[in-house]
Design a protein around this nucleic acid. Structure first.
Lengths: 116, 116
DNA sequence: ATTATAATTGCATAGTGACGCAATCGTGCA
DNA sequence: TGCACGATTGCGTCACTATGCAATTATAAT
């Protein structure tokens, strides 16, 4: 229970999407995806024309959402994307929606889609 | 060009995530996913304790993001989830992230991940 | 110890979004 | 045509969020 492969409630989390709903955060994320290596705040600041303090705050939002992780190295903090977890989460959501919605009405709820 | 399977820029759209970043919109979406049939605004209003005008507005946001579609039938408007498109979009994003991030630095950009 | 650099945090401000109520629009029915 | 019902839109309010600047913290180098 609660661990079904189609647990919509577990994965459809507004917090995750809220973190991804800001254009500058998406720009930062794209930068991280394309670099495929940890980047410092200063490096990530190059992709968006905002104050570095704002970049730092955006990274904190992404970190709190579990989208990126931070590793301190000397004076700098290197952020990297949690790509394995992120990819799995996105696929889980897709699977859950697909499983639920591929039922026609007659099959109703045999696949375990239900509100908590 | 621009149609590569790993086109991050096409799929990582803040508009989509913004539409999914509001708890009541997620509640509405869950309702639609679990019902797996078109629902009227009044029906969808049952899942969240807000004014029906707000539900209507939320549905408009979801519609503008391509997440749901509306079909008028008499006095009522029936909303249904665009599950095929949504599932494909989510999987495209997952694929793009996975493809980009599974490159180690030496392989760099042979897979076509690049900013527009 | 002092200085320099990277990152974060405090604070004030401006912009955005959710919300409820009331008014309006669209459709069906008597 | 007039009425009822479902949905949408206008508008004012409240809360939240993004932003920039300044101050602070943390680490490295002189």
């Amino acid at each position: 229970m609660g661990d079904s492969p189609v647990d919509i409630n577990k994965n459809l989390d507004p917090l995750l999407f809220k973190a991804l709903s800001e254009p500058n955060r998406i720009a930062i994320l794209k930068q991280l995806v394309e670099c495929c290596k940890p980047c410092s705040v200063t490096e990530l600041n190059e992709c968006c024309p905002i104050d570095i303090s704002v970049v730092s705050r955006h990274l904190a939002v992404l970190r709190d959402a579990g989208i990126v992780e931070a590793k301190k190295k000397g004076k700098e903090v290197y952020y990297s994307i949690c790509h394995l977890e992120l990819v799995e989460t996105l696929r889980s959501i897709a699977d859950a929606i697909e499983t639920c919605c591929s039922n026609d009405q007659s099959a109703s709820n045999s696949s375990g889609c239900k509100t908590g």
